[in-house]
């Protein structure tokens, strides 16, 4: 079952690998010698740059929240510890299972990869459900985004993370369908690698949110 396509190879492997060393001893690609860096590395590195700039954007929301929360005159929302615990566990376990799914893809094990992605998606959806439930409760208690700067900053920061999770779930469903239909092609594997980076990065942002926003600022 040869599902790996040769399509993405525009240059012969021996040139890309640097066996035709152009008068140099180094065969490291991407350093001006030995041919261009492989596409899978360029794509993942580019996506890594995107993720870092996304984190820079989140840092602006964090700064706004910290400034506003430090001067807040309105009461902070009541911290629902069990809700926050379940949300955190959902996202952490889903990040772990996303890693297992990429290991399944590296082993070219379709069942393991699809099962890992499915469980990742279910836990992500559970997280999103709990977050929307919490938002609805806050809005009903007149602590919604239109009820003061403190709540606006909170909803902007946590809601932005929630939007990222929503986009990640759509991407996850697309990856499951595409790899099921097209197999472990090189372009599919590159997309899956980017998705897994995205999902892990969302968990990193959630670590900052649950500890520095919820635990540090909300009254227990």
């Amino acid at each position: 079952m040869s599902m790996v396509s040769e399509r993405s190879s525009l240059i012969p492997a021996d040139v890309a690998g640097g066996s035709l060393a152009f008068g140099s001893s180094s065969d490291a690609p991407g350093r001006g010698e030995g041919g261009p860096t492989s596409k899978s590395i360029v794509v993942s590195f580019g996506f890594w740059i995107f993720l870092l700039s996304d984190i820079v954007m989140f840092s602006a929301f964090f700064a706004a929240f910290q400034v506003v929360a430090g001067n807040a005159t309105v009461p902070a929302p009541h911290l629902d510890m069990s809700n926050l615990t379940i949300e955190t566990i959902c996202l952490l376990v889903s990040s772990f299972l996303c890693g297992i799914a990429s290991l399944g893809a590296a082993a070219r094990n379709l069942l393991l990869m699809e099962a890992g992605l499915l469980l990742t998606g279910i836990l992500g959806a559970a997280f999103l459900f709990l977050e929307i439930h919490e938002f609805a409760g806050l809005i009903a208690a007149h602590q919604g985004p239109a009820d003061g700067a403190f709540y606006s900053a909170f909803f902007a920061l946590v809601g932005c993370h929630g939007l990222h999770v929503t986009a990640g779930l759509l991407w996850l469903g697309t990856m499951m369908a595409q790899i099921f239909a097209k197999g472990f092609r090189q372009d599919m594997l590159r997309r899956l690698a980017c998705f897994s980076l995205f999902w892990h990065a969302l968990d990193i942002i959630w670590v900052a949110i649950f500890s520095l926003v919820y635990l540090a600022r909300f009254t227990p």
Partner: peptide, 12 residues
């Protein structure tokens, strides 16, 4: 045939 297996750089 992507050359990745022999690359010196690693992607994240």
């Amino acid at each position: 045939a992507d050359g990745a297996s022999r690359a010196r750089d690693k992607a994240p």
